[in-house]
Design a protein around this nucleic acid. Sequence first.
DNA 1: CAGTGAGCGAGCTTCCGCTTGACTT
Length: 767
Amino acid sequence: MIENLVIVESPAKAKTIEKFLGKDFHVVSSFGHIRDLAKKNLGIDIEKDFAPVYEVPKEKAKIVSELRKAASEAKTVWIASDEDREGEAIAWHLANVLKLDLATTKRIVFHEITKEAISKAIENPRTIDMNLVNSQQARRILDRLVGFEISPVLWKKVQPSLSAGRVQSVAVRLIVERERDIISFKSESSFRVTGDFTKEAGNTDNGIIKAEASKRFPNEDDAREFLKLCCNTAYMVGGVTVKPGTRSPAPPFTTSTLQQEAFRKLGFSVSQTMAVAQKLYEAGKITYMRTDSTNLSKLALAKSREVIIAEFGEKYSKTRQFKTKTKGAQEAHEAIRPAYPDNTTVGGNNNEKRLYELIWKRTIASQMADAEIEKTTITIDMNNSPVKFSATGEVIKFDGFLKVYMESTDQENGDEERNTIPVVKKGLPLYYNSIAATQRFTIPPPRYTEASLVKKLEELGIGRPSTYAPTISTIQNRGYVLREDRPGEKRQIKILNLENGKIAATAKQEVAGKEKSKLFPQDIGMIVNDFLIENFSDIVDYNFTAEVEEQFDEIAMGDLKWTQMLRNFYGPFHKTIENTLEKKDRKTGTRVLGNHPQTGEPVSVRMGRFGPVAQIGNSDNDNKPRFASLTKNQLLETITLDEALNLFRLPRSLGMHEGEDMVIGVGKFGPYIRYKGKFFSLKKGIDDPYSVTMERALEIISEKNESEKNKIIKDFGEIMVLNGKYGPYLTKDKQNHRLPKGIDAQKLTREECLKIIEKSDKTKKTS
DNA sequence: CAGTGAGCGAGCTTCCGCTTGACTT
């Protein structure tokens, strides 16, 4: 018989807590929720006042039966799920499923896992808060209603297997709207003038003042006129201002900020960050990684202070507690921090080490002193123009937290190089060394990365730390958006250079629109988004979540009945569903682009059964229409008539070679060459299917044949030893088999191969 | 492994939040 059973949500947490509580306490974990709405059907009885139909999912059955057993053997059960809406619901479901008495079941909470916090919690048990539970039920049921009623409408009106939801549909909307901003963006250029100045004509030994003109010039002629003035003027220091300033460290990590910084500094995807953090958490190296709180425990504050003083000295320490500003934050956990701040590094694989180091630095920096900075601005006057040049330089007087950590920004331009500038006084004459007017183009708003999308969602109060990564996976799995790199396009920029009294025009190439790991909306995402905005504008409104959250809060306070809230929502919502099903047409994203220049047939694009398609002609004529799929980077929304017509140039023949036709086409896996019944892929980013020549095609074919040859190490007929991506392997009857370690593939005999295959077959069957 | 784009219709798809494995390569 156990005296006390404590149930928490996470097994790693259970382990830690058991250490603090001693022998009389047995700590187990529920592994999150143990019950949910029925998987099949709606799982809600709307007629019976939204009565939920709860069931224990199959994968939770084992845990539940273990918990039942443990609960029946314990004298007292303490439910220590997290202190938020979901945690309270977990407690209530546990009490129900374990048949505990709601009036006497001891509910305890703690925000940090320290001995002090836990002892305090044990001394102050309460009962389960039904108002909070009901606010969770309202949240859960509302999400199910939205998802399970709108998605089937999409299956009928757009395409099967699509989905919509309170969170994912807004995420897609953000990406679609950003793309449209980019599409409608018109880039303009102007000339930016920068100059290098010195104290002595032609002598750079005493330092260079790098300055920028206060005015930009709309075109080359104006820029040239200005450079002529620059050529014939006297320069003088018009003023020097020195401004002291401070910079403060960022708060410790939450899930969202960790994802952002891990992407910017380490290049991790959102899900990768979470997977690595999970490993660190399970190893007891960091605190819980799904949190919206920037709070640090007293213990963590004290430990960090010790570390900072020992490492950098007293004046680098400044203990701070950060307030969480995020909308809808529930703060059931601490910020993400090192479990033991005195460990500057940890073991584990490389990614674990790097992420840990990032967390350590961010945490420690948050407890360090402000950096003190001195910003110097020099203005340079011209005697023949009101335009002034100005140079700024920054000197760090005291580095403070910068010694450890500097937060990154999303702007990739390293434009803000921090110069130190020479000391000068007002009235000092200066001389130009060189002045350049460089053409600059305005840039469109940036596409979202996974991490910047999470940041935006968090700002809008949409989604929770535990769902950011899954949501981003969902919208990619549905095909709504795609994470991609784009090479960008080269463009010429004009430069006017003034040196030694002469103006010379040059040009430089720059790459514009290069993208790395950005989220691009796909046609189906844009069509679904438009359909939802047309028919369910209030659900995909950016404020929808905030508005329902307010009502959930009212329910939690006991000021609103949860079934009443759902009734208010469901009435009009369900009417919209029925109305849309009944009256709205299918949405295909059709655009008529014009007529075929020769035949006059209409040319259109739309979403077809197998994806976006271009079509020439209509099926009601005697002639059958012709179809061609759009290429990967084309959008229904932006494709032009010419681009669409171009798609019909494939497949095309390159002519005969050795008596066989050679054909270029585009298939499932991209552009290919078909020759003698075999397929050869064109090289991505190198070969263009519209212009590739027979000569180049033969090159690709022989290259492929060559590597095919190298692939075969031994050929015993039905058994082959092949060279694969992961080294040599065996193949027989279309089954691949790994080679045991330490075997020389070159020396294998047929008999040895048979033995290896026999063995691997056996292990496969037994496992 | 590299098409497909007519129409019928059975049976399936789908949400958000809490938590980790069990899997294959």
